[in-house]
Amino acid sequence: MDLTRPFLKWAGGKYRLLDRLLPSLPEGARLVEPFVGSGAVFLNAGFGSYLLCDLNPDLIGLYRTLLRDGEGFIARARSLFTPEHNTQEVFLRLRAEFNASSDVEARSLLFLYLNRHSYNGLVRYNSKGIYNVPFGKYKAPYFPERELTAFLTKLRDCDVAFAVQDFRATFSQLRKGDVVYCDPPYAPVSATANFTSYTGGGFGPQEQIALAAAASGAAERGMPVVLSNHDVPLTRDLYAAARLQSFPVQRFISCNGARRGAARELLAVFS
């Protein structure tokens, strides 16, 4: 399968699982993603129309800026990927500029820079909405020009709309012919596991329950939903009405390299 890589590093990104995920997507007129993340599914799916949503305004702002400014944005971003910009002093200055700025284009450029220069490629905000990932200390951060160009080409070749909104709002906008793919913040694999949302908020058990209910309800109205999560007792219970696939996956982003191991992924198809 000839696949296109996203240009963003993303915890839980689905690029490595596309060979299992894409065949599970039913046919439809429009693909709706309430948690678009790095856009790996969007990039490689064959729909003619897309609604791409996320609660992270910096992520959606970046995609909108790339579509609007195209090659000019890529050129400006390239200028940040030089040895002079790959020091902790410059990183901290640019991170502070990002956190202080309200300009969408400036934040988009810096969001891409931070994503590629931050520790482990993490995207994380504190409770006040401040991006707080430390410097990654990479020898030469990769500038994803080829991947940016491929993403831009896909944006230009299809009918795509963006929205910064909660998954509940996205489900309320579904229409006949839609297929939904959900890649939410995952349920913890153990009672002691901890997750800090990349939007600065939280996605706990009540959100997991509400998402499963929304997926089931959409499927009953004729709009199939495919949902990814950890294979744990909570998700098994919540997705009991769906067709389930479980398989091992390798986790690549972790604070402790020794703990980057196999976990089980659950793919639920509500139809």
Rank of each mutant, 00 (worst) to 15 (best):
K14F: 02
R175W: 07
T170C: 12
P141N: 02
I130L: 15
T170N: 02
L3N: 01
R124P: 11
V32T: 10
L234P: 07
Q245N: 12
D237S: 13
A100I: 11
R64K: 10
Q208A: 13
F91C: 06
A240Y: 07
P6M: 00
P144A: 01
E220R: 15
K137Y: 13
E27K: 14
Q173A: 11
K139W: 09
L152M: 01
R20Y: 07
E33C: 06
R124I: 09
R93V: 15
L80Q: 06
Y119T: 08
Y119I: 10
G261K: 13
L22V: 14
L234E: 12
L21I: 13
L122Q: 01
D178A: 09
A218P: 10
A140M: 13
D178P: 02
V36P: 01
G177I: 08
V160T: 10
F35H: 04
T4R: 00
T199H: 09
A11C: 04
F162T: 03
F270V: 13
V164N: 02
L234T: 08
S190P: 09
V269P: 03
Q206S: 12
A169L: 13
C53I: 10
D231Q: 07
Y138T: 12
D103G: 12
K137H: 12
L211E: 03
R68Y: 05
L234D: 08
T235I: 09
P224E: 12
V133E: 06
A29S: 15
T65Q: 08
R20G: 11
S190E: 11
V123A: 05
R243M: 14
R20Q: 14
L22R: 02
R107T: 13
L67R: 09
L211S: 08
P185Q: 08
G121K: 01
V32M: 00
D166F: 03
D157Q: 12
R78N: 05
P6W: 00
V226L: 09
A45C: 07
E71D: 10
G39I: 00
P57W: 09
A218L: 01
L94W: 04
F270S: 05
G70E: 05
Q250S: 12
H85G: 13
M223K: 05
R93Q: 15
S190W: 08
V232K: 04
R221T: 14
T235E: 08
F35M: 03
A75Y: 05
A191K: 15
Y138Q: 04
G12C: 08
R124Y: 08
R259F: 10
T87I: 06
L112S: 03
D103E: 14
T196V: 15
P205Y: 11
V36K: 00
V160F: 03
L51Q: 07
L114S: 00
F252K: 11
Q165P: 06
P205G: 13
T153G: 07
L112F: 04
F162Q: 01
A106R: 15
N44W: 00
V225K: 03
V90L: 11
G37L: 04
L227G: 05
G28C: 06
